[in-house]
Write a protein that binds this DNA or RNA. Structure first.
Lengths: 249, 249
DNA sequence: CGTGAATTTGAGAGCCATCAATCTAAGTGG
DNA sequence: CCACTTAGATTGATGGCTCTCAAATTCACG
């Protein structure tokens, strides 16, 4: 039910038939508390999980004990679908908040693959969307300064939450600490704090208790050099994600 | 012929039958000079290219004109296979050196997908290998300093070239300028130069006219915190890539 | 209302960018 | 064969962005 709505809103839009096939492939739904590692790096995996509720990270632990995020997932994301061809992961998948996930066995995915090549390409596409986001994260780290990196991340989350109806285009829930945002943007919690203050003083956005409010999206987008083409959104959502159109029609 | 050998050495090992299917899917072979953009960002793509000879970049151009690499490809890499499900790319694909590539129309890939679900998963796997490398690049930028970043990149290229027989484990051709290495590691050419000198003075590696010689692989690996698990290499190649075994058997 | 987590602010230091110049190597034309 | 040209490598001096360390304040929650 919930997944149906989520899948409906994905960039890779699915037909009713395809949604049904995926729905039927769900073996069961699980809940995990914040901090729980869903898939540890390197262990054999025989099922993939679709995120229903909450936020999930992909992260790599450095030898010095520091954690570095290489991805964040929002509801509707097929979090570790890439484990289906890979069979083991090069990173950890963990719950950033309390989460609910749907578990889909790889055996069911094999059946889908044999039965429906179009849906298979859709699934393949969804894993490549992750890769496209990875590339943009690389670009962000390579070319933007601290302020721009945080602004860019906020723009991305706004766009992705917009696509699943979890942002109205100007305000959304982002239950991440400043330290966690630092793990995304390669900044210390201290400097993230200074950057957030700067963005607030510039009148671009503000945060209070895990709700982020974007005050001037066009200026935030400009500061971040944000261009959502890498999210492969439909034209309307892309326009709303950049503030190109003010009317959330 | 050449492609056959290249495909033989890939991490995603293929059967003779699968190699033949891919060989037959090649429409033709093209040559491009260094600097040529093979696939511009955003344009519709109807064929994918397999790199036969030379180096290929994936890169994003910043508004200020600076180029930032988000990926580098070596011979044997199915460079833009991900364009098959995506249909258009979020970045440019360009020739870093003079290159030869094999062109495989998406129509042929569709036929493969309908005929052989195992080979399809292999192809899917190959695109996910790129994503795994992206994640490691993110990790590199997030957690390593300048010296470690360059060392890590050299370790990665050594490992990947080792896997295709283009490195003997200690010396390989890497026709990249220091400025281009900077575009990978988010450093200026000036600082890449200082880092290279440091690595030379530490007795870890040295470069002369586009040939890179690794003098002390274990120490270089340790400095870079390099762990090649993300490349999904076989055990022997992984061992040679970290200098765990000194005997190139 | 107490406790710990998260946010906020300040001071000082370090890594790397920027700017500028020199040097080397490779290719070009006379 | 040599002057000329140009891209790339190398080195030095200076400055800025962000980290580190430290402390205070606010917030969430039992």
């Amino acid at each position: 039910m919930l997944t149906k709505n989520l899948l409906r809103n994905r960039a890779a839009e699915l037909s009713d038939h395809e949604r049904n096939m995926l729905e039927e492939a769900i073996a069961h739904v699980q809940s995990h508390p914040a901090g729980h590692v869903l898939v540890p790096q390197g262990t054999p995996v025989s099922a993939s999980t679709l995120l229903i509720e909450g936020l999930v990270t992909r992260h790599v632990d450095a030898p010095d004990g520091r954690r570095h995020l290489v991805g964040v997932h929002v509801p509707g994301d097929f979090v570790d679908l890439h484990a289906y061809p890979l069979k083991k992961l090069d990173h950890d998948v963990g719950a950033l908040t309390d989460v609910r996930v749907a578990v889909i066995p790889h055996a069911s995915l094999e059946k889908i693959q044999d039965a429906d090549s179009r849906l298979t390409r859709r699934l393949w596409f969804m894993t490549l969307l992750d890769a496209a986001m990875h590339r943009q994260w690389i670009f962000r780290l390579e070319s933007l300064n601290a302020t721009q990196r945080v602004a860019h991340f906020l723009c991305e989350m706004n766009a992705r939450l917009l696509a699943i109806g979890a942002s109205d285009g100007s305000e959304f829930s982002l239950p991440m600490t400043q330290a966690e945002i630092g793990e995304v943007c390669a900044l210390t919690n201290v400097h993230v704090n200074r950057v957030m203050r700067e963005l607030r003083e510039l009148g671009m956005c503000q945060t209070r208790s895990s709700r982020t409010q974007i005050i001037d999206l066009p200026r935030l987008v400009a500061k971040a050099l944000f261009d959502p083409h890498y999210l492969y959104l439909n034209a309307e959502t892309a326009a709303r994600a950049t503030g190109t159109t003010g009317t959330p029609q």
